[in-house]
Design a binder for these strands. Structure first.
Lengths: 223, 223, 223, 223
DNA sequence: CATGAATGAGTGTTCATTCAT
DNA sequence: GATGAATGAACACTCATTCAT
């Protein structure tokens, strides 16, 4: 048991019942699997390539995971549950609580900058999750319940509070407000990825400010 | 060649050099391939299932397409070039031209409703294109150049014209405006798909109106 | 279809729904499978060895049979249904009918000699059937219903008729009589196989006569 | 070596050079192996299941037995040598000696009843031995030399003595007599196993009596 | 041009056996 | 001596691709 790696030293898995603690070998396999899946997708990846990448024998993989699909789930689900999910939500929640009294503009800008950092760091991971969620309901469920729903709730609560404070229009559903700002922000990230040259000229923070400004110009309560 | 089908009778392929005109058999194969790819994704589809679905022998497929990958490209690229692309762009273009003098609110609503209809109809196709574009650069290129770019250009032109007319703020980049409205609209579609129960209560047109209203409240030039 | 082999040219399969007619390749595979199974038993046989023995690619095997187990069943079941079963039963039945009026001694001797010839010819086949029937209920069922039961019925009918004619004791169940003569005969065959040197000295026919004599001495009705 | 188990406390192995005395662990492994082999046959059994069943680590098994095949031999050979063989023979021998002066009918009935009891108790073991002897010559040899031959000798001696006493026909080889009674008896056991419903109606002892009666009616010397 | 049987490299998975601890 | 993680050759089976008919 001496080769166990302490939970906090890797992003995967806390007291997650699916995996428990990870041995050195398991960690190497999961890291290799994530790399290979990320590059080629699940179907086009082979267990033998994962083994080669992990530096273990192919048989070793199946000592730790019953099937190839279990490797996929054991790779992505804990990441969503323990890393993406809480990572995303907690910091979001903290942000919203912490700066409860800042003006809307500033809070939203902080949030978007914070989100952007997180998403950039996690992008390869998020990408494979989003792709494979199309074919594996188990992934879809965890994605929805552990990531999407949590983000929504945090944001909704925040927006509703600001509505009741009179800072945001309440003739529109908070849900609609949320979709708009999240959509605009997401579209910016996508655009930055697809057309790096296009967005490169602009200062990132300026662009985020513009997004917030446009949103709030429409969303603020007119006195 | 009596079994040739006139171009205009099927959505695929015009003067596309990749395929030229399609024989009856080719058409059946492509239709079958699209169905199978759509259901299981490229990697998990087998040529034998495509053959069965098309009602031809497996060998026949390879008489028309050199490899499985060529089937994928021959299926999706013409669709993007001749169907999604123009279909999308033209109608968009027409709409924008046709109602050039309508108030912003009405034009945007018309556009979104029109887009929504198109996207719904094409969704299975768009889905597989978006998914596979992640792994096949050939697809990604065509997707960007033939679909995304065209939509952007139409919308940009429209927004810029309205900016120059003084109807929209010109302190913000038209690109930024576009991202916001497109993002908000896309977020609505995604939300409708992922949480049908959530969005079900609302009247679709009301929701689109809210999106437009929110956008324009922020985007309109203050006099 | 020109490579189909007429049914009657091989022992396997008549209008057997399991296989229908056999192509040249299928025939080679089944022959190879029978050989390999016979030599090493089912579990220890590999599909690759069967392929090598049949002179076909391993993939070819699975074009004709879905699983390794299906090869086993497709090999043995038709043999039992079309070869062992009828072969055994018909000739037995014919014999019994044909020589209905011969003295018991002669009929029994004819039967045993006939059976012995059949069983010798089929021994490798019977052996693998008997062995694998222990692990595959499908085989056991066909063995019992198509072989064992048929033989029993023929013999029982014969013995009962002779009982009612007053030639055999009727204070004993015909079933008991049958078991005794069949058992004695089987023990002789086993003994000949296990201890060839022991039984070699004796003339085969003399030995069969002794078996019949011993049986009839006990089984004949005392006047 | 304090964990050695005295020989006489387990049925396996006496001065058998193959195993010598057994440690507690070895005993557990052999018991587990016998169970697993008995249930699935040799080929379909896995060493890991044997280990699990024995409650030891998989590596431990290979510390005691070089190969899987050695486990099979170490399991079955000593059982034949020390349990089946002697067990069978001795009690048979004793019976024959003890009741040397009883009438044939009674002795044979006693023998058959005694054998039946033994065989029933040992059936799972005998079954696997008979099956695997087909593929492992080492097993076949021991089976023939230690079990079959011994039984034969005891019975032959008995029958020959009765022949010389004038109680049994001596115009037939004792070997022939033996085969007949053994065959009839074996056929009864097989029949009882395959068609339990058929033989259920009859009283077991009555059936045995009938077998003996039929045999002796034919085998007894006519005065 | 169409067929579909044949191919064989490759797949995910198993398992007897080894060996560092 | 006992362990069980690691191994890798072998397994049953798949599938894109070829080619004789």
């Amino acid at each position: 048991m001496s080769d166990k790696i302490p939970i906090y030293q890797h992003p995967w898995v806390g007291e997650d019942p699916l995996l428990g603690e990870l041995t050195d070998k398991q960690w190497k396999i999961l890291k290799a699997a994530l790399k290979v899946f990320t590059e080629k997708g699940y179907s086009a990846s082979t267990t033998s390539e994962i083994a080669r990448e992990a530096g273990v024998a192919e048989g070793t993989i199946f000592r730790h995971f019953k099937t190839k699909k279990e490797i996929l789930l054991a790779t992505l689900i804990p990441l969503m549950q323990n890393f993406i999910g809480p990572g995303v939500t907690n910091s979001l929640h903290d942000l919203l609580l912490q700066h409860d009294n800042l003006p809307m503009e500033d809070v939203l800008l902080l949030i978007l900058e914070d989100r952007q950092k997180h998403i950039s760091a996690l992008w390869p991971l998020l990408r494979i999750v989003l792709l494979e969620a199309n074919y594996h309901p188990e992934l879809r469920d965890v994605l929805l319940n552990n990531v999407v729903t949590r983000v929504q709730e945090s944001l909704l609560t925040f927006l509703q509070k600001r509505q009741s404070k009179g800072e945001l229009r309440d003739d529109l559903d908070a849900w609609t407000l949320m979709r708009s700002i999240v959509g605009a922000f997401a579209a910016y990230l996508v655009s930055k990825t697809l057309f790096p040259e296009r967005e490169q000229g602009h200062e990132n923070r300026q662009e985020l400010k513009a997004i917030v400004n446009l949103f709030l110009s429409g969303a603020k309560k007119k006195s």
